[in-house]
Design a protein around this nucleic acid. Structure first.
Length: 406
DNA sequence: TGTATGCAAATAAGG
DNA sequence: CCCTTATTTGCATAC
């Protein structure tokens, strides 16, 4: 276990890191941050296949994302999967046309959201790149909190009139199944490479989303009489591609940043859906997420988009009428919304080094030992436990990578 | 300032 | 409850 030579992460200067504190963020202690020299490892430790996100994939919309292209290994979005289909209504996510603030809207909205969000089969997505790295680099500590979200009930904040203005996105399924033929050359390539396992099945779970999918594969052929929703599974990659693009355009048109989108997601109160980070939104837009992940996120983002646009229309309308006060009683910020978003603990360099040394002695410490370490580092036991798990995992990858190259 | 990205926590799902 | 494996995110920080 050459856990790498944790480079120079010595300088830990304590940064405030004042983040949006979470009510239940228990620990939150100051955390130091190796701002200064910090990582350094960004470039240094490339072993074998650099970074490795899980999806090598590539140019989905390569041209556009061009910038990224520099490093093909970085792509997360696994494009493809030949099993493209004309998804029935995999993505129709419109609200009821009319009815302002009418409760029913909420209902419909939720119902659809729920349906569309519901995960289905197991992951099994595609290639997973071992991705090696060396550990090191320290950062600040944060706190984590996990609340068993309650999901359920949702109230649609400002459901206002929304004309079903179907995003062309939903209409453009003209592809008469000519699949490949109208695929970007890239796709075809990808397909060939990734083909195997069709049915990747959507599943990416959103923060707090309760899943419950197990079946290895979705047997169940016909299923569902008549128009089988085919659920989120097999959604044409091209559809995702176009949606992502449209999403970005419209988002920008609304003048909302990625970060805000992520934050506003929790306001939708879709069951099991909390906020997401700017990173995730960014990755969605650039299709650098796995296919399954893209599929899982799409309905949520689509819902948000429609919500935001509806709100915008409403606002505009209000302005026009000069009615400044504006009706829409939304504002009901309902403080009970304990923003559920996966929190990530940042372990400072110093702590990390200690953990590493412990790891060398014992890769799999007992629960007691873990508690001890956690106590010493003032970290939660679970954080330490997970750290060891991840460390073992990383170790394994490194070992594998080393074997490969050697 | 928003956005991309590297590294790697946190989770999900099956033992 | 803990582990492993596969993946989803997020913090930090580089553009």
């Amino acid at each position: 276990m050459l856990t790498s030579t944790s480079s120079i992460e010595q300088s830990l200067s304590i940064t405030p890191t004042t983040k949006l504190s979470f009510p239940n963020a228990s620990t939150s202690f100051t955390s130091s941050q190796a701002t200064t020299s910090t990582n350094t490892n960004s470039n240094s430790n490339s072993i074998g296949n650099t970074t490795g996100r899980y999806s090598p994939s590539n140019f989905y919309r390569a041209a556009a994302v061009a910038a990224v292209t520099s490093d093909p290994n970085n792509r997360r979005y696994m494009p493809s999967t030949p099993w493209s289909k004309s998804n029935c209504f995999g993505d129709s996510f419109k609200f009821e046309p009319n009815s302002l603030f009418c409760p029913t809207i909420d209902d419909n909205f939720l119902r659809q959201a729920e349906a569309l969000t519901k995960p289905e089969s197991s992951s099994t997505s595609s290639l997973y790149y071992p991705s090696p790295f060396a550990c090191s680099s320290g950062t600040a500590t944060v706190s984590s909190s996990s609340s068993s979200s309650s999901l359920s009930t949702a109230v649609y904040p400002g459901a206002s009139s929304i004309e079903s203005h179907l995003p062309s996105d939903q209409i453009q399924h003209n592809h008469h199944s000519q699949l490949n033929s109208d695929l970007h050359p890239f796709y075809q390539h990808q397909y060939a490479a990734v083909a195997h396992h069709h049915a990747a099945a959507a599943a990416g779970v959103l923060p707090g989303m309760v899943v419950g999918m197990h079946h290895h594969s979705v047997h169940h052929h016909g299923v569902i009489g008549g128009l089988l929703p085919t659920h989120e599974l097999d959604i044409d990659p091209r559809e995702l591609e176009s949606f992502a693009e449209r999403f970005k355009q419209r988002r920008i048109k609304l003048g909302i940043t990625q970060a805000d989108v992520g934050q506003q997601l929790s306001k939708l109160k879709m069951p099991g859906v909390g906020s997401l980070s700017q990173s995730t939104i960014c990755r969605f837009e650039s299709l650098t997420l796995s296919h399954n992940n893209m599929v899982a996120l799409k309905p949520v983002l689509q819902a948000w988009l429609e919500f935001a646009e509806a709100e915008m229309r409403q606002r505009k309308k209000d302005e026009m009428n000069g009615s400044i006060g504006s009706s829409s009683g939304h504002g009901c910020s309902n403080g009970s919304l304990v923003d559920k978003k996966r929190k990530r603990t940042s372990i400072a360099a110093q702590e990390k080094r200690f953990l590493e040394s412990c790891f060398i002695q014992q890769q799999r410490p007992s629960g007691e030992r873990i508690a001890q370490i956690a106590d010493k580092l003032d970290l939660k036991k679970n954080v330490v436990r997970v750290w060891f798990c991840n460390q073992r995992q990383k170790n394994k990858r490194l070992r594998f990578a080393a074997g490969q190259s050697a």
